[in-house]
Amino acid sequence: MNMQLFVNGIVNAALIAPPAIAFSLLFGVMRFPNFAIGGYITAGAFAAYAFNVQLGLPLLASAVAAMALTGFIVWLSDIIVFKPMRGHGPVTLLVVSIALTLILEHIIRIIYSAEVRGFDIPLQRPVKFAGIRITYEQMDIIALALAVAVATHLLLRFTNIGKAMRATADNPVLAEVRGINTGLVIGFTWLFCGALFGLTGVLAGLDLVIEPLLGWNLTIPIFAAAILGGIGSPYGAMLGAVMVGMAEELTVLVLPSSYKVGVGFMIIAVLLLARPHGLLGQPEIRK
């Protein structure tokens, strides 16, 4: 029984990790918590639904198309909404991002209503192994989350654009001084993170159901993972995702499962109390 919870926790962590990484990267360059991630993820799920169910594409192709489309939407949200407001304080941008997530969610509501939907995939029996039950979709989720983690690591460590992303997050003025076009780097960051939010929408749609509140329900655990890992630190976000994912599942032992979202919040509260900068994060010098 407890092994089953462990497996559930891993699946949960795998679902949270890619968006937590993306949220952290985005925070690194933009310096405000973007609440619109809920809307982005929901958009990703419904984009994949449209490609898969309405256009009849295979799921894999739909997922790729949804990632591209979400990446574009997220990039566009920067161009239209956030870019003209550079230099505004974090709270202003935060309010704007909440407004944006509501706009996205309700556009989807107008198109698709609040109905619960799923992808067009054959039902497969879950694999049973030593009393543990896991579906093929869940195995895909774990594999993809690992792939995202590795790919992000390679991107940040070994590619020029990845290093430029880290440099821009670290010290945007110096990045400019060294000749880096930070505008382009920021644009790429939005695009890349957008693709990860799109992927999250697909994966969440596989594991849960597709509905307008899909992304919103993931927002708090994602924040919890990112803060736990030290906001702005993508590696910390991976670690944070594992801890939040496990914690959410293991609380089923003591609390009704409907309190899962609350667990994410409790983690945030306790953690910020003890370590205001997160687990791996570095204290920021306050101006």
Binding site: P90, I268, A269
Partner: peptide, 23 residues
């Protein structure tokens, strides 16, 4: 609980509080 937090973190904590009450 959250007096020492940066304002954007305070936003997350209070939002979480609201959701907790609703839950």
């Amino acid at each position: 609980l959250s007096i020492r937090l940066r304002e954007d973190f305070l936003a997350i904590v209070t939002l979480g509080f609201g959701e907790l009450i609703r839950l």
